[in-house]
Each structure stands twice: as C-alpha cells, then as structure tokens.
Design a protein around this nucleic acid. Structure first.
Lengths: 311, 311
DNA sequence: CCCTGAGCATCAGATCTCCTTATGCCGGGC
DNA sequence: GCCCGGCATAAGGAGATCTGATGCTCAGGG
C-alpha cells in the first residue's frame, strides 16, 4: 500500500526539484529521501524518477502520482482538521500527577469541575516532589502539580507552567492549646519550648519549616518526625504537639486543629500545574487545566491563608 | 500524520464491529489491532473508540474519521490503479542474474530485444549456479537464468519457472584434430587416449561431463582442469586438448574449434528463467522475460545443437 | 585540462516501529 | 461459581527508517 509519508516526499520533490532540496525542506538526510523514493518506486512497480548522477526528475508516471498524491494529502489534511476542531469536545484520558497534599486537596474540586465532561476520564496519581516535571516531559503523565519553595520553577522550552496557588506555612495547634486563642500573642521565644512535629529531614517542606522557625526565633528541636502531613495534623488534633504546615494540607479537613499565622513574614510556596507545550491545546488537557484553575479558586475561598497565584 | 494502514484498520473495525473480528479479517493479532488503533487515537488527539472490557465501538469522532478514511482510501486505490495500468509501458530497472555462460550468450540478444524499451534498464549480473533461485526469492534480483542437469528445477510456490533452452554437451576439438573431420567416426575407446580438459570437480557441468564420458566408453582421466568454459574453449582452439562442453558455451564465438556430437545419447541440461510469481506481470519484468524467449530463439537458430525447450 | 563542489546511490549501524505471544482483567452466559 | 471470549498491556524479535560515511559522476570555473 502507498505510504502517506512517501507521498509527501514525492510531492515535495516535485516542488523542490532535487532530492537534496527535498531533504533539506523536510528535515531528512538526502540518503533517507533517496531510499524512501526508491522504496516508493519498488512499491509502485514503475519508475517515478529519472535519476542521473547529478540530477533527478519526475517521469510521466511520477507526475501522475504527484497529482493523485496532492488530492490524497488534501483529504488527509481535511480529516486531521475535522478531528482537531471537533476535539473541542474533551474526551479521552488525561493523566495528572500530584504530590500527595495537592492530590488530596484538588481531587474533590477537580471531580466537581470535570463532571460535565462525560467523555473525559481523569487519572490522578501521586508522585514524590521533584519528579512531576520529568514525568510530564517524558510523556508518562499529561499534567503535573508541582510545588516550589525557592523560586526554581521556570518556564521551559517544551513545558508550559501555570501558577495556581500561593501556599504559606501556617502554625497548627491543638484546639485546647493556649495559642488556640486567636487573641493570644505568639511569642517566638516561647515557641522554642513547644513539642514540634515535622516531616522528615530532606523533604522540601521540612527544609522550609526549618528555615521559618530559624527566622522567627531560633530553631527549636523537632521532637517528632512523621511522614505525611495528614498524619501530622491528626497528631496535632490529638494534642501530641504543634506543627508548621502548608495551608493546603488543611484542605483535608482535619478537625480539632486551630490555625494561626506566624508572626512576621512567613515562608510560602507556589503551586503550579505543568503540561507539555505541545498538548496544552489538546481539548482534554485544556479542560483539565481549566478545572485546576477553578479548583484552585475553590480552595483559596475555603482556606483563608491560601491565595490565588498571579499569572 | 495519519497512516493509511491504520485508516484501513479503523475502516475494517467499522465494518466488523470488534477488534477481534477486525484482526481476523486482516490477518493480524487482536493485540496488534488494539495497539495500532490506540496509536491512531494518540495521533488524532481524540478518542475514536469506546472500549469496555468486552466490547469496543466507534465514538462520534471515530465515525467521522471513518468517513474521511473511506474517501482517502478510495483515492489511494485510484492512484494505485492508475500506476498499475500505465505501467504497461515497461520502465525502471530489471536485475537479471545468470551463470556465466548464459550471461555471455544471452547478453547480445537481450540487448537487441530490449533496445526499443527506452525506459527500461537492464542490469545483468553473474552468479554461481544454484544461487539464482534464492536470489530471486529474496528479491535481490528480479529474474535468474538457471540450469538443470538432473531434472530438479520445479515450479515453486512463489516462483514461476520458464523453460528456455535444451543445451546438450558437445565434443569440442581443435580444427586440425583428426576428429575435426565430420566424416571421421568417433570411437569411444579411442577417446580415452585424448588429452581432456574440463571444469573443476564439483561444478555441475563437470559432473555431467564425467557422467557422459563414463557412459560413452569409460571415464578417461581429465588431464587439465580450468575454471571457465571460455578458457577451455580457447585452449581447445590452441590445440591443448579436447573437451565436452555445453553447446551454449559456443555462443561466445570462439574460433578454431570444431564441434561434433557425441555418439549415442548425450547428456543435456535445461535452461530456465525464474521470476517471482508476484512480479511476472510487472510490465518491466514481463518485457525482459519476453526478450529472454526471443533471445533463446536467436540462440537456437545460431547454434544447431541447441533447441528451444517446450513450455 | 584539472580541480572543486554538488548531487545522488549505496552501505553499515543505530534506533524506532510493528507485530506476536503471553498474561491478566472483566463481564456475560451457562 | 466457572468458563470463555474480548480487550489491554508488557516483553521481545524482526523489519523499517533514519543518519553518517563513502564513492561515483559531472558541470563549472580557474
């Protein structure tokens, strides 16, 4: 069967007049074009190109094939156009990966936003921080939610970055803690005596916590380390200790925790959605990106310490 | 870019209603069809098929693509038809391989016959006996001239065999040899005392010569072995000895040699042209096959010991 | 007349694509 | 509850496609 790419080659050859120019125009090597056109001739069972040592030109049969090919390629382009324009109806599967806090926080709002897209299916996965962008780049996932404490996330040649939320660290205390009183002043010096809980060393949020506590009054020793902010918030609720946590983690709705802002300037991260530049116009991916923006809006409304990130 | 084979698949899927039936109809495994249709969806950027665990059906976008595809494939078929009908004018290159004697013998007549096919180019190669059929089968060459001393060449599932010539062994003697006199009787017993030349042991024609000489009067020792019948005929002309050679080798036109028929029944070979069944209707290959028959006719006219082989 | 550069063919090797086979999941029918 | 058919996916092998290197040819310029 004729091959569309070879038909494209012979049409371009007809325009350009030489194998070398055709190769240059289409981004192949001249030997690739030569071999592909030879294969086309074998398949057609007729000479399509007259070649001499320094030139090549179409035979009569070659010219006739080019006429056919132009019509065929025109129909192919129509088909692709039709698919592309009707793909405004998002459908298919979109794979999103998020660090755990974001997955928990965004999932309900995403589900709510995407409910009306019947043909779209969403797969929400969890990944460890720092890997989301690579997974987008490699095509394993379509969109990644990533966080950035230090301003390192930038626009990328092949990736598009959408800012969603500003997510500051806040102080979480048990309901019966003296600092649960919103009128009680937070004395940084007294904070040093508290039983602090945090995620393990090496986690990005832990580094931010250490930095924050150092800034507000010397780093108190962290008495307990737990993996998972959900776990930590549960323990805060139980009175085990206090913790500095990203505001977003409160989206999980843990009861029995009172949230106070840190005195002075806190440390915050930005939360972004990242997608391949080549797929942001795909209707399904665009729909999920819009839903993420909408979800971010809900979250910012629900959690007073969160704010929408500027575009 | 859309791929014609995948478009063929989705059209067949539209007809058959299931991936399994499509696979069966087109000779693929179901997983191949599944993978190819998934690739088509990725490339189209839109869901084309709704799949459940036990069924699959086209989406609206899939149905629209099938409509486009039917038109595209129809044009492709027109193009292939046009090429195929206009390929009645033989053009392109045909590669023929022949054992050396046949190459030398057929070349002039082939060139004469093909002169009027301006767009056809012929490449005449030489190969060792026994390899020609394999080279045709593998596609390295289009036509092979092969010889058969023992009736082993048969019709083949994918090859078509055309008998061309019956080529007997004849006695070649120097012009001044006593047996050069056509009236001199050839006494087999006296032949034993002659200085015989032949091709090296193991060559098919040598085996035939040994058999012939054994049949006509006991195998005389072959005093000299030379590679190449042309060489042997030159030496016969120079009076070095005598030889039993296939009549076809005389087509080279060596002067100074007199040819006599062997007493009794000689051994002869058949010479065939072999081509792939799938290419014998290709205009260029058909033209060369006709030219080979015509050339065989010339050769049989020129060399009295040769005869045309029955179809 | 000779040299240079451009164009083309071909070969070898690396990479990618396509296919098969095996395996697992799901759901309908018995 | 079990069996069977349909589909997806993974792994591996074979073939296709591409690049880069090399060689040949020839036109044009010095």
């Amino acid at each position: 069967m004729l091959d569309l790419r070879r038909l494209t080659l012979i049409c371009e050859f007809a325009r350009r007049g030489s194998i070398a120019a055709t190769a240059s125009s289409l981004g192949y090597s001249a030997s690739a074009v030569s071999q592909q056109l030879a294969a086309l001739e074998r398949e057609a069972g007729v000479a399509l190109i007259d070649r001499t040592s320094r030139s090549a030109e179409l035979t009569d049969a070659g010219r006739r094939l080019v006429e056919h090919a132009e019509r065929i390629l025109s129909l192919v382009e129509s088909a692709e156009s039709d698919l592309s324009s009707h793909a405004a109806t998002p459908s298919g599967r979109v794979v999103v990966t998020a660090f755990p806090t974001a997955a928990v926080a965004f999932a309900p709002a995403l589900a709510r936003s995407l409910r009306r897209h019947r043909e779209l299916s969403l797969r929400l996965m969890q990944s460890r921080s720092g890997r989301g962008m690579r997974e987008v780049e490699s095509g394993e996932v379509d969109i990644a939610l990533v966080d950035d404490w230090w301003g390192r996330v930038r626009q990328h040649a092949t990736l598009t970055v959408f800012p969603l939320l500003n997510d500051p660290l806040v102080l979480a205390v048990p309901r019966r803690h003296r600092l649960a009183d919103p009128d009680a002043a937070i004395d940084p010096a007294e904070l040093r005596d508290e039983a602090w809980m945090a995620t393990p060393e090496g986690e990005p949020s832990r580094t931010a916590v250490d930095r924050l506590l150092a800034d507000v009054g010397g780093a108190p020793p962290v008495a307990w380390e737990f993996e998972g902010l959900g776990t930590i918030l549960s323990l805060v609720a139980k009175g085990t200790g206090i913790a500095a946590v990203p505001a977003l983690s409160l989206a999980a709705g843990v009861r029995g925790v009172v949230v106070r802002e840190f005195p002075g300037e806190t440390i915050e991260r930005r939360i972004y959605a990242v997608a391949r530049a080549s797929s942001v116009h795909r209707a399904s991916v665009a729909a999920v990106l819009r839903a993420l923006h909408v979800a971010a809006g809900y979250l910012a409304a629900d959690l007073p310490h969160l704010s929408l990130a500027a575009q």
